[in-house]
Nucleic acid binder design. Structure first.
Lengths: 206, 206
DNA sequence: ATCCGCATCAATCGTTTGGTTGATCTTTGT
DNA sequence: ACAAAGATCAACCAAACGATTGATGCGGAT
């Protein structure tokens, strides 16, 4: 029995590549291509694919994680397999939390992708080998959950803004900014702002 | 007359995609695929393609800029067309300086790629529209050239290291680190370390 | 032979930052 | 109704930071 697949990627070249790879497998059938999350939802609702192969970065519009969450709310819900270039921890965990069935890096060989699709269709969780460890570690010591406000501050921090600028931008006092920063540093285990930026980037928080 | 092309990308899927796209054009002929810079040089020396279509990020091994420089030293030298996901200024300029004939983003439509290849083969410079402006701006106010040592400091800075740590790591005194930082800030137009990190990332310096 | 850029170091000074403690108010969940 | 968590603000202090000035030695360019 063939597995039906919907491709979601904002790069036409990548879509062509996936289609070429998957067309060579007779157990997999590509039933559609979407360039955006919105388009993916429309097509998925229409074609009911077994698996949606989805990039995390989708240019403009909703991102891969939101798309995943929305796809999983469909009935019947397709398995969602994330296929992307990046392996940033927060994104992986975010995608899994959103209901993704698995996560593969684009570096992998075509056979791995085909294999992953079939395992995803069978309900298995699919993770690139080196990712599995990190995800499990992530479970053991969960990523610090920053509040919305803390993310605001962190984002501005990452642009190099001084506390005064952050305060002005967010319409709060410098004291408040410092307060948020203290919490951010504590949660991230950073001892200064530069390190906080580094950790935040590293884990994909921003 | 057909234009011969060598594909260079570390992602099998992307190579398949490009091949699929280019095979559909009868004026272009793919003569080889390489996953690394080293492989690209070997194949280019052997097949003498008119154009090499090259990703900037090539995983391990030499990067796209180095590959470009080496390719341009071949005789006859192929035109090198950079095709990548990212549009960071320093990389674009670096690629152009290394002798790249043009620079396209992977977001573009397949026809644009085919068109770009043919224009590159004809010796034209090919730049994605929104890039052209930035490159020209880059010419007007050239990117600050940091010294090797400054890059060392900046890299450590970006990991969140304090001056003392940077000093220890580089086996110099803190005074020296501060001295380098002053120059870095001046060159980047940054008023603090966080902003310097931001600018450095933004322009692709690190 | 001279000049200039680079790397190295030193001393000083004012400002910013990060750490701390503690407080009020709102929202959210139970 | 109450507890918990988040957002807001205040005042204080030591350490770190950024700016400035100035100096030495080395290497490459002219």
């Amino acid at each position: 029995m063939t597995t039906t697949v919907l491709l979601v990627d904002d790069h036409p070249v990548v879509r062509s590549g996936l289609r070429a790879v998957l067309d060579s497998a007779d157990t997999v059938q590509v039933v559609g291509e979407a360039a955006t999350g919105e388009e993916a939802l429309t097509l998925a609702a229409h074609f009911h694919p077994d698996v949606v192969l989805c990039d995390l970065r989708l240019g403009s519009g909703i991102d891969g994680i939101e798309t995943t969450a929305a796809l999983r709310n469909l009935d019947p819900a397709p398995a969602v397999l994330i296929l992307t270039t990046f392996d940033r921890d927060a994104e992986i965990l975010g995608a899994i939390e959103a209901g993704a069935t698995g996560y593969l890096l684009k570096e992998v060989a075509p056979e791995t992708i085909i294999d992953g699709i079939q395992r995803a269709a069978a309900g298995e969780t699919v993770l690139a080998p080196d990712l599995a460890t990190r995800v499990l570690n992530g479970m053991r010591s969960p990523l610090p959950k920053l509040t919305d406000r803390e993310i605001d501050v962190l984002s501005l921090l990452a642009t190099g803004a001084a506390n005064k600028e952050i305060a002005r931008t967010l319409f709060v006092t410098e004291a408040t900014v410092k307060s948020h920063l203290v919490h951010i540093f504590a949660k991230l285990g950073a001892e200064n702002r530069s390190r906080a930026i580094h950790i935040a980037r590293d884990t994909g928080l921003i």
